[in-house]
Amino acid sequence: MKNLQPAKLMIFGISLVFLTQCKKDQQLLGNENHQTITQNDSITAAKADSVKKAEEEKSKVTYRSIIFPKNKKDSAMSAFKKEFSAEEQYTILALNRLDSKNSWRADTLSIPDKIDPTLMAYSPFPAEVETLSNVKKMVFFSYPIQAYALYEKGKLIKWGPTSMGKKSAQTKRGLMFANWKKELAISTVDSEWKLPFNVNVHNTLGIGWHQYDLPGFPASHSCLRLLMADAKFLYNWVDTWILNKGGATLKANGTPVIVFGDYNWGGKKPWKYLSDDSNSNDISLDEINDIIKPHLDKILKEQQNREEVLSQKATEEQKPAA
């Protein structure tokens, strides 16, 4: 029995070390879990702060109206151009769904008390949409407020004005995907119409977004008109379709696009209510979620397919030539 004592002591010592190490490992694991939770909480808090800040900045903006009487439109426009710089005019006109070429059409302009060239301070779209957190890129075009919005992983990165299809040639609603793009396309309606930075979203109907006149109301032949700077940005930002060899069949879709809502044809333009209520143009988070949910599974499925196609392509390109 005495000869067994050293062995027992050794086993006891090893067990003590093991138990001590386990306790340390549990403490470390607990610390790591605590750090991970803390980091996640910090990220969530930072995102919440970012959204809150955007909402606070937006809530601080107030608007006034400038009226352009028919019999004094030239003098009123002259006063407008004298009061604001070219950059400020561009921002104000964009907010009123106009470009400089069509500024003469203005009868009333909503003027913000703060000029933000990015337009983000006036965004009618939610700053963050959690439903889209797994969607890499998403485009919305709203008929009611004649505006587009771009999201990356559920975060609004850009929005701006548009002119969509007129009443007799309305833009198709629903989910579509970016197909091909061309830096300068020619309209199939009229060969004299040049369409810079064209991105097709419905190949058979010939619908796409591109730069063209913004007259302050839906005026296109079903396409989605944009300001030149916006058209160029979207052209470089969007992902287009991937075709099989020979280009005969579709292999993967491009960036998802949803066109939604209806315009108040013949009614007062929504952005003209801003002086009465700075939130009058807003699209709520609930509304956006209702628009997304019927299409979310399809969007994620197409996104996964695209990633697999790109992964397979990259693997094939790395293979040595036979």
Rank of each mutant, 00 (worst) to 15 (best):
Gly247Phe: 10
Ile11Ser: 03
Gly165Trp: 14
Trp193Tyr: 07
Lys158Val: 02
His210Asn: 05
Pro218Trp: 07
Met164Leu: 15
Ala121Val: 08
Phe18Glu: 02
Pro144Met: 11
Pro69Cys: 07
Arg105Asn: 09
Val238Leu: 15
Leu195Trp: 01
Ile292Val: 15
His295Gln: 08
Ala322Tyr: 04
Thr38Met: 13
Ala314Lys: 03
Pro294Gly: 09
Leu234Thr: 04
Leu226Phe: 10
Pro161Trp: 01
Pro112Gly: 01
Lys8Pro: 06
Asn3Arg: 11
Ser75Arg: 04
Phe125Ile: 08
Glu308Pro: 02
Ile207Ala: 04
Trp209Asn: 03
Lys70Gln: 12
Thr315Cys: 05
Lys293Phe: 04
Lys24Ala: 13
Ile145Gln: 04
Asn134Cys: 06
Asn236Ala: 06
Ser85Trp: 08
Leu28Ser: 04
Lys301Glu: 15
Lys114Gly: 02
Met176Asp: 07
Asp41Lys: 11
Asp213Thr: 09
Asn244Leu: 15
Pro6Asp: 11
Ala76Trp: 02
Ala169Met: 15
Lys301Leu: 15
Leu274Tyr: 00
Gly208Leu: 12
Ser275Lys: 05
Asp262Pro: 13
Met164Ala: 08
Thr249Asp: 10
Ser65His: 00
Glu317Thr: 05
Ala121Phe: 10
Lys319His: 05
Pro196Val: 12
His202Arg: 09
Thr240Phe: 10
Pro69Asn: 05
Ile37Thr: 06
Ile111Tyr: 01
Ile291Leu: 09
Asn289Lys: 13
Leu296Trp: 01
